[in-house]
């Protein structure tokens, strides 16, 4: 009897609507974040992450309402990422019913913000999102760097050192996304996930590249992740969260069933 490894479906939300297509056969409105979140909750999701990909401030206010709606009907932890830049942004999301926020670019432009956020709200609700790409060439030892703007802009920051630094500043959890694997469906960058997970004491969520159930299992077994995040594998009805958990359990991983 011990802590279960977590499965976290992730929803991209633009102006209050889920994008990237969610196709449950018997869902009335596949763009409604509340309906989709409820569905994942019923399937046994351990948490749900919303990624606000909206550009404008007006639309961000819409995200607050989405969180409020979901939080009054879904009673599992909710994380909101995207556009979290100030203490006030965090407060709004937590007050709306989010349990954690994921800080991404703001951490890179101003690392002290992570510390300020943790001091103000506690480490338990601060997730730092790390978008990393492999920069080493074949034959060299592995090296990853932090990229921004959806993987287009390099920062020159070493991903492993960055992860350690975020832990020192108080982050409660790290969401590690391989920008090389994101959207490829060929599986996590397991070396990246494992190298970071073994370098810090806080939990690591593996993200980027899940295309089949075995990838989730690999993320835990070989990637040493505490939790695995996936989007399309669940959105398109390819697999339910429940099936994913059964597959992990079969592989000897402790899950909440």
């Amino acid at each position: 009897m011990s802590l279960a490894k977590r499965i976290i479906p992730c929803l991209d939300v633009d102006n209050g609507r889920v994008v990237k297509g969610v196709q449950f056969v018997d869902i009335r409105d596949a763009g409604d974040p509340v309906e989709i979140a409820k569905r994942y909750d019923e399937q046994g999701a351990d948490e749900i992450t919303f990624l606000d990909i909206t550009a404008t401030a007006d639309d961000r206010a819409t995200m607050v309402h989405v969180v409020e709606e979901v939080a009054s009907q879904v009673f599992i932890p909710l994380t909101v990422g995207g556009g979290i830049r100030t203490v006030e942004d965090i407060r709004r999301m937590l007050n709306a019913g989010a349990d954690k926020v994921a800080i991404n670019s703001a951490a890179i432009f101003n690392p002290a913000f992570v510390q300020e956020a943790c001091d103000t709200f506690g480490s338990q609700c601060i997730v730092v999102a790390i978008d990393a790409k492999k920069v080493s060439v074949a034959g060299d030892s592995d090296k990853w760097e932090i990229f921004t703007h959806g993987g287009r802009r390099e920062t020159g920051i070493d991903a492993i050192e960055w992860a350690r630094k975020m832990e020192e500043l108080g982050a409660g959890e790290l969401l590690v996304t391989s920008m090389d694997r994101d959207g490829t469906k060929i599986g996590f960058d397991l070396e990246l996930t494992r190298t970071i997970a073994d370098s810090v004491n806080i939990p690591v969520i593996a993200s980027g590249g899940v295309g089949e159930l075995s990838h989730l299992t690999e993320g835990v077994v070989s990637g040493h992740a505490e939790a695995v995040l996936a989007a399309s594998i669940f959105h398109f009805g390819q697999h339910t969260v429940q099936e994913a958990k059964q597959a992990m359990q079969k592989a000897g991983i402790e899950v909440r069933l």
Partner: peptide, 13 residues
């Protein structure tokens, strides 16, 4: 091998 904080779903006996 265990992480801190103790974060996630655990059993209550």
């Amino acid at each position: 091998e265990l992480k801190m904080p103790h974060m996630g779903w655990n059993q209550i006996h």
